[in-house]
Simulated scan of single mutants.
Amino acid sequence: MKAAVSAVPMKDRILDAADGLFYGQGIQAVGVDAVAASAGISKRTLYKHYPSKAELVAAYLARRTGQAIPFEGTPVEQILGLFDGLARWFGSKRFRGCAFVNAVAELSGERQHPAIGVAAEHKARRLAQVRTLLQGLGVDDPDRLAEQLMVLFEGAVAVSLVRGGDPQVAHSAREAACVLLRSAGVAVDRDARDSAR
């Protein structure tokens, strides 16, 4: 067992521990002592890799940007796939809301915190991805429709969190996304509308 643990790069060990603790218990509730203990290292070793808790929190969120719901398929399938991914996530035991929104809420009094920038960049990147897909579909106002779809997406995360992780919220948001897409002149076939069920 020790050999397997030591084979994991130190930064990854630290971020694995930080991810579980920060997402599971909250950024403000978890100190660097707890992260170091969970990683099986000293606080001094942790600080060699992440000189401050702020840098550790920003790194934790930055790594999560690579774990986002993937985009695959046709543009319509990719857009609706975002909501399918939400349904799976909401039904999992690990769902505690959006790590990026949670971090911004916890750090709202620290607007210069580096994690706030990481969260904002992540959300802007997702919006840009959806806008690009909509441009490819030839919709008249891709900026506006992308914003509307992302409001549905983010709203579904918040509502599901309040309801204790309800996948039905994602299905409802997906249906609303289909309505928005159709009203913008995008063909959404019956199979695409029903695939989340």
Rank of each mutant, 00 (worst) to 15 (best):
V139W: 01
A105E: 15
G97P: 02
V151I: 13
G97W: 02
S92F: 09
F153R: 03
G81C: 13
A177M: 10
R144N: 08
V159P: 01
F90K: 03
G155T: 10
I79K: 05
R111E: 11
V179P: 03
M150K: 04
Q148S: 01
L107A: 05
Q168D: 12
R125D: 11
G73Q: 11
L107D: 08
E77S: 15
C178N: 05
A119N: 03
H171W: 08
T74K: 13
L80W: 11
K93D: 15
S172F: 09
F100Y: 12
L133A: 10
N102Q: 10
Q112L: 07
F95R: 01
P114M: 03
V139R: 00
A115Q: 01
L86S: 05
A99F: 06
Q148V: 00
R94S: 15
S108L: 05
P167T: 11
Q129E: 15
A128D: 09
D141F: 09
A120V: 12
F100E: 00
R94E: 15
E106T: 07
R163A: 07
I116C: 11
L82W: 04
G81V: 14
L134R: 02
G73P: 12
V104I: 13
T132V: 02
A115M: 00
G109I: 01
A176D: 10
L149Q: 06
G109H: 13
E154W: 10
